[in-house]
Design a binder for these strands. Structure first.
Length: 558
RNA sequence: GCGCCGGUAGCUCAGUCCGGAUAGAGCGGGGGACUUCUAAUCCUCAGGCCGCAGGUUCGAAUCCUGCCCGGCGCGCCA
């Protein structure tokens, strides 16, 4: 990457100039930045400003000395000292043309880092199977999925996991609700409990089970309830998977709390905490001493009625995860769970794991609106908008892109009316259109009988128009963007990069005719188009958004 | 009351981690560009006490302190 080359170059200049400047001790790693103003060059460093305060010299003097000590370098056209002591570098276009050759060679892997053995698990969605996914799950699903794709691009070996609590009070209420419907459909009218679930899907489940498993009605209450609850949960999990598949979200594994319990892992985990003195009994319950790990309160592992809490199961689940050999664990949680961070990391530490290996990515809430009006949502009352309906209305691509447009810790608005519009309000179509346009150009060239020559034989040096150069620069930045977005767990940076790349392509399209009588220019520009399309597809791929080969105009889409 | 997250153009948001030069983008508003590879596009103009007040620094949207406003959370709920 050019930035790395420049950083090393600046460092050698700095090191060479250090003795005469009287700089001793550790030298800072020069920061390479892209100046906002073109007059300030292609790249710049402020390293002279950084070190000048350490010695009695003006930062400009320091900058001059560093520049004088810089070794010769290819691609560097001009170096100057500017302002208070910035060192600005102007490059020849050759480095940009090299980027094009690199993209041609690397294709779909351009911008990604080499695969490493570092294994990371991303656990997300993890909604309990008490009902279909609704829009409230959308951001978590998309963020977790995009994060997994992004970390994969950054070289991690990634596994995506869905954990669900199929034991506990909520599941009991869900099971009792379906059971009531089940009995009613078999001629034993039964009211759904007051605190139960009331969506239409409950009745659907009850009816299906009544048809398929009428024999359960003869079982004792406990056994029948367990059978109904288990079968209903399995069906709901099936729905959830189907919905997520439509949303382009897939998992490598599903883990059930009840399974952990059956294997005795939960009891074991709690015993382990007791043995190490990190758990104690009080008020008839078993508590984790999370205050010893920075939490503001101790937390209950086993309630006074003998049932473990979700947190108790979480401890067993932590052991389960680490036992599977992950180097790093990421939990994707909504803002309402930020208070749980300290206890989970505390538990990791108490159980003998490296707490730094447990990372929680929090996202803020989404307000769903329809034409400016808030969409009412209550899961128990069954008045939520399901994720399936959202996908029906706006499409998976538009929903995903919109949800990935903003920083994780920003609350965001999602107006279903706006996002469904194929309008300029909708950046996803802007970016996708860029890709479709490129495909269209390549088709046009093919139909015109233009045969793309091997890139090694094409004179790329004729790509010197400002629109071409700006496009090349955007392509050159992509590896750094992906690396940074991954490091910051910030897929929205990828979304913004895709918009920027699309914008630069659209400008290039407007200003530069690709397929023309000038065959040398046609060849060079076709390679630029190919590279742009390939990189755009890579970026969209990280977002889990499709890169269409064509997009037909829609009526009234101006 | 305590904790976490936001507060940047009329609106929605980048930029804050790791301080740099004249703070960016989209939408909306004004004005332009289609006999040309898709006008779902492009160009141009207007629009900013970067919540407020201090502090650190050669330099602060960015770091520190306090405050204001909004969201979320705060012992055996999930």
């Amino acid at each position: 990457m050019i930035e790395d080359d420049l950083r090393g170059w600046f460092r050698s200049g700095l090191e060479a100039a250090a003795p005469e400047l009287g700089l001793d001790g550790e030298l800072p790693e020069p920061e390479v930045m892209e100046p906002r103003q073109k007059e300030h060059g292609d790249f710049a460093t402020n390293v002279a400003l950084e070190v000048a305060s350490r010695i009695a010299a003006s930062s400009r003097t320091v900058a001059e000395a560093i520049v004088a000590a810089l070794p010769p370098a290819a691609f560097v056209r001009k170096v100057e000292v500017a302002g208070p002591g910035f060192i600005n570098v102007f490059l020849t276009e050759g480095w940009l043309h090299d980027v094009l050759r690199r993209i041609a060679a690397e294709g779909a892997s351009y911008g990604t880092a080499p695969r490493t053995e570092q294994r990371v698990q991303v656990e997300f969605v993890s909604a309990n199977p008490t009902g279909p996914l609704h829009v409230g799950h959308a951001r978590n699903a998309v963020l977790g999925d995009a994060l997994a794709r992004l970390l994969d691009a950054a070289g991690w070996t990634v596994e995506r996991e869905y954990y669900y609590n199929d034991a506990g009070g909520q599941m009991d209420r869900f099971g009792a609700s379906v059971d009531a419907s089940y009995l009613s459909h078999l001629g034993r009218p039964t009211d759904i409990p007051e605190d139960g679930y009331h969506g239409a899907y409950i009745d659907e489940l009850g009816r299906e089970l009544a048809v398929e498993e009428p024999g359960w009605a003869a079982l004792p209450d406990e056994e029948r309830l367990a059978a109904v609850r288990g079968a209903a949960a399995a069906r709901v999990l099936g729905w959830i998977d189907a919905t997520l598949a439509r949303f382009n979200v897939r998992f490598d594994s599903h883990v059930s709390e009840a399974a952990l319990d059956r294997k005795g892992e939960i009891a074991q985990a709690i015993d382990q905490l007791r043995a190490s003195g990190n758990a104690y009994e009080a008020e008839g319950a078993v508590w984790f001493r999370s205050t010893a790990f920075g939490d503001d309160k101790d937390r209950v592992l086993v309630r006074s009625d003998g049932r473990h809490t979700y947190f108790g199961a979480d401890c067993a689940y932590l052991i389960d995860k680490f036992d599977r050999g992950f180097d790093h664990l990421i939990y994707v949680w909504g803002a309402d769970h930020h208070g749980d961070i300290a206890r989970v990391r505390g538990a990791a530490q108490a159980l003998g794991f490296e707490p730094g290996a447990v990372e929680i990515v929090i996202h803020q809430w989404v307000s769903f609106l329809r034409g400016g009006e808030p969409v009412p949502m209550s899961k128990r009352a069954g008045t939520f908008v399901s994720l399936d309906e959202l996908i029906d209305e706006v499409g998976a691509d538009a929903a995903r892109f919109h949800l990935l447009l903003f920083g994780n810790d920003h609350t965001m608005r999602f107006d279903i009316e706006t996002v469904r519009q194929r309008s300029m309000d909708n950046p996803v179509y802007y970016v996708q259109y860029g890709h479709a346009r490129i495909a269209s150009i390549l088709r046009t060239a093919k139909e015109a009988g233009v045969v793309l020559q091997p890139i090694g034989t094409v004179d790329l040096a004729i790509l010197v128009e400002p629109a071409e150069t700006e496009l090349l620069k955007a392509l050159a930045e992509v590896p750094a963007v992906i690396a940074k977005a991954a490091a910051l767990r910030a897929p929205h940076r990828v979304a913004h990069a895709s918009q920027d790349l699309a914008a630069r392509f659209h400008r290039f399209y407007t200003e530069c005719r690709v397929v023309s009588d000038d065959s040398a220019r046609t060849q060079a520009r076709l390679w630029l188009c190919r590279a742009s399309g390939s990189v755009l597809a890579n970026l969209l791929g990280i977002l889990g958004v499709s890169a269409p080969e064509r997009m037909d105009r829609v009526e009234g889409s101006t």
